[in-house]
Every structure is written in C-alpha cells, then in structure tokens.
Amino acid sequence: MPQPYQLPDNTRLLVVIPALNEEESLTRVIGNVNHAVPGADILVINDGSTDNTAKVGKAAGAMVVTLPYNLGIGAAMQTGFIYAHEHGYDFMVQVDGDGQHNPDEICELIPHLVSGNADVVIGSRYIEDRGYITPAPRRAGIIILAKYISLLTRKPYTDPTSGFRASNRKAIAMCSRIYPSDYPEPEALMQFHKANVKVKEIPVTMNPRYGGQSSITPIRSAYYMIKVMLAIAILTIRRRPKVFS
C-alpha cells in the first residue's frame, strides 16, 4: 500500500462519493479513501438507493446525505458541491462508489490545486496506457466526445467522461450554483471553459467495477451521445456564467 497523503496545513478536503445501490462496494471504497487521505471528510450522496447504501456508508464512518428519490448523477454531484461550498471546504474530490477510481491517486490530483496550476484536475484513463480496457464501442464514443470538446474549447482532452475529479473553491462555488444533469462530466468541461475555470488532466489508473451495475447501457449510449453533444453545442452559445470567487 502507498503512503497516506498528508494534506497541507489548514486545508480541508471533502471526498464526495455518489452512490446508487452500491452496498457491495461502498465499504471498500470508503476504507480505501480513509487510508489514502486520512485527513479528509467523506460524504456519500445516496441517490435514492433501494438497498442498504446509506446504512453501509454510515457504518464505514462516512457522512451520508440521502436524497428523497433518485435525482441522477448530475444532481447528486451538485449536492456534494453545495455541501462543500456551504461548509467552506478548500478542495473537493469526487470518487465513484463502484470502486473504479483509485483513492490512492487523490494525492496526485490535489497538489495541482494546491499549487494553483488548475482549478479542476481530472484523472484520465487515456493519457497513458495503464492497462484499462474499455469496450470498443464505448472507447469510440469517448474519443468522439473528446475530439468534439477539444475542438470547441481549443484545449486537448482525452477522457471527458472521467468522474475522477478534484475541484478548488472557485470550481466548487460555480458547480454548486450550476451543474449539468444526467451524465454531467463532458458538459461540465464546457461549463468550466465558459467560466474560465482552469482544467488539467493527469494520467491515472482505473479498476474494473467491484460490484453493482454500470448505469450506462448500450441502448442509452446513442441517446446519451446525441444529448451530450447537443447540450455542449448549446452551452457554446449560452451566455457566459458569472465566475464566483
């Protein structure tokens, strides 16, 4: 196991874990986060689960916010941003509840925020080949999205759907006010671009899921691609959101 990461003095980190029916993997994810960044607070957003996600999260020592019904990943994440903003956290990291993200790599995201190099740091699976295997159709979809967003923002992106992200106060404040719904990650990139939020991608290693079901089915994928590309196109002509400091 790598060494636990010590946060700089007087900085508070919130790790947000959005979870929909993740009772099988949640204990392990929370345990890993606790080991990787002992000083961080952990908040599980239980997005209307029908299993024991809330109980399992509390038992593992995390704070749990339970939404009254399923709002979707975007609104669940935004709940985390609102919490981080209202409680004055310096940084917030989002880690999927299914175990795909590697909490040990939180320590690679945070320094870029501490140094002021970026307002948002994204862990990308595709900067370096670290053995993460994506099914070909999904890989094709991700490449199309990456090229599309890179073209519109004139910045290179490799993994626009990655949900392994760290944000500083500026990004937290903005996302607590406006955050896209449904599958929000690619749209959020465009939103950051419009608000002059600096985004940086760094290479990470991701795991196969521990358990549960992926929320993206083949049938939804086509609809998802069209919806996201339309939403991003509309964002380019939308009025620029105010930057909150």
Binding site: V65, T66, L67, P68, L71, A75, Q78, I82, Y83
Partner: peptide, 13 residues
C-alpha cells in the same frame, strides 16, 4: 423540484 430535493437531503443530514 431538484433544488428542493437536494435541500431536503442536506437538511435531513
């Protein structure tokens, strides 16, 4: 509705 549901969750916590 979304904003209200988020607030309910946060307040319940």
């Amino acid at each position: 509705n979304r904003t209200a549901a988020q607030r309910i969750g946060l307040l319940q916590h």
